[in-house]
């Protein structure tokens, strides 16, 4: 007996419909979609509440949020639709709620993704940020919980961090409202003014890079570049997660005319 969770195999044409039907996100014409991603329990919902004035549940344990939530806020006369995602340790999901987050980050094409990090454990948290930066250049890194970091007597050199990562860094203490102005500003600059970033790309060890090089030409033939970053796709091919490859294929098909037909609902893909 299998748990069947959702069905992602509808052939969809435009992005708005993808958003609506896959993620339950409704945008009005002139709205910028902003995703809130991050490890579990770093304060994503707290940031969300502070910006939107809503009351998403928060709690000091990983896994409080298990579904997409959305809310809007206005900044400098522009409307932003913020999507609070379940926490996830990486883009290689294991559980249902992480899959929800992963799919939105990978395939939702938001106008900006805020990756929220826990200032007290940057080393672990940066993993996800770097993964997201492989997919998208529209990334803002929000280093939350700086009040906790202060209590632990950690001082973080944000200027240097920004230089290294090549994307905007905003330190916040969301629960106290610290840094939210700057965060909104950074979102505005990225989503509305389309300011470019140069996200740091991890350089992998030689054998990994070599494997990527052999895969890239094959992937270019599939002409998926508009849908997903080829290098990132190559990396995913190196993981042994076939179901994710299938998901990528399905999403690609919804957005790429070259690949038209879809596997029928529930049909098994055998190799």
């Amino acid at each position: 007996m299998e748990l069947k969770i959702g069905d992602r195999s509808n052939a969809l044409k435009d992005h708005g419909r993808v958003m609506r039907e896959h993620f339950g996100i409704r945008t009005t014409g002139e709205q910028y979609v902003i995703a809130l991603a991050g490890n579990p329990n770093v304060g994503k919902s707290t940031v969300f509440n502070a910006l939107t004035g809503l009351h998403q549940h928060t709690g000091n344990w990983p896994g409080k949020t298990v579904d997409n939530a959305q809310g809007t806020y206005t900044y400098r006369n522009k409307s932003f639709l913020l999507v609070d995602l379940p926490g996830t340790y990486s883009l290689l999901a294991h559980s249902v709620e992480e899959e929800i987050a992963r799919d939105f980050i990978c395939f939702g094409h938001p106008d900006a993704t805020i990756v929220v990090l826990d200032a007290t454990s940057l080393e672990r948290n940066l993993n996800l940020a770097l993964q997201v930066m492989e997919i998208s250049s529209k990334v803002i890194v929000c280093v939350n919980l700086i009040d906790e970091a202060r209590k632990k007597k950690l001082s973080i050199n944000f200027i240097e961090l920004q230089k290294e990562l090549g994307v905007p860094i905003v330190p916040t203490a969301a629960r106290n409202g610290e840094g939210l102005q700057e965060l909104q500003n950074a979102v505005y600059t990225m989503a509305v003014e389309k300011k470019k970033t140069r996200p740091k790309q991890v350089v992998y060890s030689e054998e990994v890079e070599r494997a990527i090089c052999t895969l890239l030409p094959k992937l270019e033939k599939l002409d998926l570049a508009r849908v997903v970053n080829p290098k990132w796709l190559a990396l995913r091919l190196l993981d042994s997660d076939i179901s994710f490859i299938e998901t990528i294929g399905r999403y690609a098909a919804t957005q790429n005319q070259k690949i038209v037909a879809m596997p029928q609902q529930g049909s098994k893909i055998t190799l």
Binding site: L122, E123, R124, L126, N127, L130, Q131, K153, L154, S155, I156, N157, F158, E160, L161, E164, V202, V203, Y204, S205, E207, V208, A211, L235, L238, D239, S240
Partner: peptide, 24 residues
């Protein structure tokens, strides 16, 4: 190789964290 990918990322974050975080 999948392990190498993760190990490489963490090698970098470790280095980066050392560089930007000062612990009293």
């Amino acid at each position: 190789l999948a392990d190498r990918v993760v190990t490489d990322i963490f090698a970098y974050t470790e280095k980066l964290a050392k560089q930007v975080v000062l612990r009293e």
